[in-house]
Design a binder for these strands. Structure first.
Lengths: 137, 137
DNA sequence: CTTGAGTCTGTAGTACCTACAGAGCGTAGC
DNA sequence: GCTACGCTCTGTAGGTACTACAGACTCAAG
């Protein structure tokens, strides 16, 4: 197989290479209904086309931007459902943005504690390590 | 039970309340060896003392600071092992700090993309939503 | 016709919990 | 003494998002 121009469709490995997605993840997305069941050859091999490429790219991009699979599923439904308005898309994006910002705030708090504590630690043979104090407090 | 002053030791629910840990999580930590097997009453009820409280607090604090359970396990081993030096503790903390900073950088990148894209979106009845463009690109 | 690479399937493993069912235990009230 | 209620015990299943593997099959090249 592996029709060089993908004229008749491509195999799983081709789709994986094209999108940078892990080979097994494609099958996983199919199993949980994120990707549609593709047509098969007579012997059962999956055949993918351009529509599969777009859809998988959409999912991967959403994941890169920190959306959960469920959130991506929702966005896909809006897009595929031919939403006349993007208000809902914007709303979900902003909800997600709030999540992302909350996570950043959390991590910054952690960073601050760790930085301050590590700074107090000489690293020498000290009986009372300030880092351990923080953990044990 | 529930000896008001915890003189003879406390039950699981008491330990949970005292540390803010989920009841089931205590059992889970025991199962994976993060918490030692506690003594039991004749009928099999777990009995916890002050040492269990400290250890659980250490674990929870480590988790709050974003250490993995394995990292916490390692720190605990250093502490309980009566390490003469805290150099190793400092090193691990700094390795973890680098992880935290990398995660912050990741999230900030995500935040930037989402903010910029959401700003371009009017939220009106637009056929080409810039958010979807980003996802589909 | 054989060989090697690709594909198929189901399943198990990762991290970190959380929740539940069904059984047993302990105590307060009657 | 007995019942009722709440706690504990156990093992196991679920959730999120994959990733990896074993064993069987298919396909194309030499």
């Amino acid at each position: 197989m592996s029709d060089h121009v993908f004229g008749k469709g491509m195999q799983r490995a081709d789709l994986a290479k094209l999108t940078g997605c892990n080979l097994e993840t494609i099958r996983y997305y199919e199993k949980i209904g994120m990707m549609p069941d593709p047509p098969r050859t007579a012997s059962g091999y999956r055949i993918y086309g351009e529509d599969h490429v777009s859809r998988l790219r959409f999912i991967l991009r959403g994941r890169e931007l920190g959306f959960s699979l469920d959130e991506v599923r929702g966005l896909l439904a809006l897009v595929e459902g031919g939403a006349q308005t993007c208000a809902e898309v914007k709303e979900r994006t902003e909800r997600h943005l709030a999540d992302v910002r909350a996570k950043i705030a959390d991590l910054r708090r952690i960073e601050k504690v760790l930085t301050q504590t590590a700074a107090q630690c000489s690293g020498d043979m000290v009986p009372d390590c300030p880092i351990i104090e923080v953990l044990a407090s």
